[in-house]
Simulated scan of single mutants.
Amino acid sequence: MNSTSSLSSPMDGSHREAIAIHGFGSLAQPTRLAAVRHLLAVHPQSLPAGEIARLCKVPHNTMSTHLGILSRAGLISAEKDGRSMNYRADVTGFRGLLKFLSQDCCHGRPELCGDAFDLPSQIIAVEPTETFMKPAFNVLFLCTQNSARSIIAEALLEKIGRGRFRGYSAGSNPAKEPVPEVIERLAALGHDVSHLHSKSWDEFKGPDAPRMDFIIALCDSPNGQFCPDFGNQFVTGAWPLPDPAQFTGSPTERTTLLNELYAMIRRRIEIFTSLPFDSLDRMAVKARLDEIGDTTRVSP
């Protein structure tokens, strides 16, 4: 018996203590504690293993080890979704740990810990509602080098989506790193740039990768740039945009062009996140995505 949820079941003191030590011990590590925080933040929804690894900024294989420890401790639960594994916070396990602290350590006198148990009990006791159960959409932005356009789009969606959308980006021929000017501009505009980096779209093809709902290509196809073809597996859209790597002129002129590009992407994402997804079928969403990318319809 290794689940902290069993702390609520009758057993002798030594067994209860051993299970509690296992539970608290599994949390006594920065990556695992971060993973639990992210899962509690989206509870009762789940997250794919690859998404948790991205949020915790660790390799997928390392994250799998940590998730296994948390699962055996009864603090998270796993469920298979096709070829992927999704994980959800197990609030029963957390209740067991809190109950152990209040009843065993405090000898049934939780007042000894003041209000330490008030806030967690309120949060953990929240039952799933229809609002909480609405899924978040995963959106992958593609361009050639994943150094500017798709990086900007990822940062904007994370901010504008406000939890309803999760932004990702990748490139068909990724650069070593994002364009410094882009990162500087995003930081100046209040975006979190700590996790932004150039990467190949191959990272999103493995079994542990987060499952995408939409893939939007930002390649400048009118000028000869092309993105990988994902076929009909995903809802895709084409938003051709100019490549900042081709911007010329003085630093002031380049900054002006970058601001215009940022405004174009922001406008498209604002329209995209406002679509009535509940009332649109797959083909209608596809059509709306392409309309958004039509430069004759959308301007800064």
Rank of each mutant, 00 (worst) to 15 (best):
L98T: 09
G82V: 11
S274M: 12
R149E: 03
I183W: 00
G231R: 07
T296N: 14
G23Q: 03
Q246F: 08
P228Y: 09
N2S: 13
R95C: 07
M63A: 10
S9N: 05
G293F: 10
G114F: 05
R37D: 09
G13P: 01
R83M: 12
N86S: 05
E203V: 06
D208E: 13
N223H: 15
S121K: 12
P10D: 07
G163E: 08
E260L: 14
F226C: 10
I123K: 10
A28F: 12
E127M: 04
P210Y: 01
Q29D: 14
F272W: 01
L258G: 02
A34Q: 11
V36F: 01
I21T: 07
V285S: 00
I124S: 04
G231K: 03
A136R: 15
L40A: 06
A187S: 13
L101K: 10
L157K: 03
P110K: 10
R297K: 15
A209E: 00
P44C: 05
V91N: 03
D90E: 14
S64M: 07
I265F: 01
N232I: 09
I183M: 11
L241V: 12
D229I: 14
V91K: 10
A136Y: 01
M133Y: 04
R185K: 12
Q29P: 05
L98E: 03
E177F: 11
D12W: 11
H22A: 11
G249D: 08
I123V: 09
P207K: 12
C56Q: 03
V139F: 00
A20S: 07
T255D: 11
P30L: 13
M283R: 09
A53K: 05
Q246I: 11
W201F: 14
S169Q: 07
T129K: 02
S147M: 06
T255S: 14
C56V: 15
S5E: 07
R267W: 07
A188G: 11
I183A: 05
L119I: 15
L47E: 09
K159P: 00
A155N: 09
P251C: 05
E17C: 04
K80Y: 05
T129E: 05
A136T: 13
E203S: 09
L258V: 08
N232K: 12
G237R: 01
G249W: 01
F132A: 06
S77R: 12
P30M: 10
L142V: 15
P228I: 12
R288D: 12
P222N: 07
H107Q: 09
L140F: 00
D294S: 12
P228M: 10
D208R: 01
P48V: 02
P240W: 08
S147C: 12
T252A: 15
S150E: 15
E154F: 04
G13A: 11
H197I: 06
V235Q: 02
S6T: 04
I151A: 02
R32S: 05
F204N: 02
G163T: 14
A209K: 01
H191Q: 14
H197M: 08
S221F: 10
L140I: 04
L119H: 08
A188Q: 13
P276W: 06
Q45L: 06
A28D: 11
S194E: 13
P135A: 13
D192Y: 04
A188V: 07
F234A: 03
K205T: 15
S194F: 08
I269M: 07
N86R: 10
H43M: 04
A125I: 06
V36H: 00
A155K: 03
M85A: 04
T92M: 06
I160Y: 00
Q246K: 13
D202E: 10
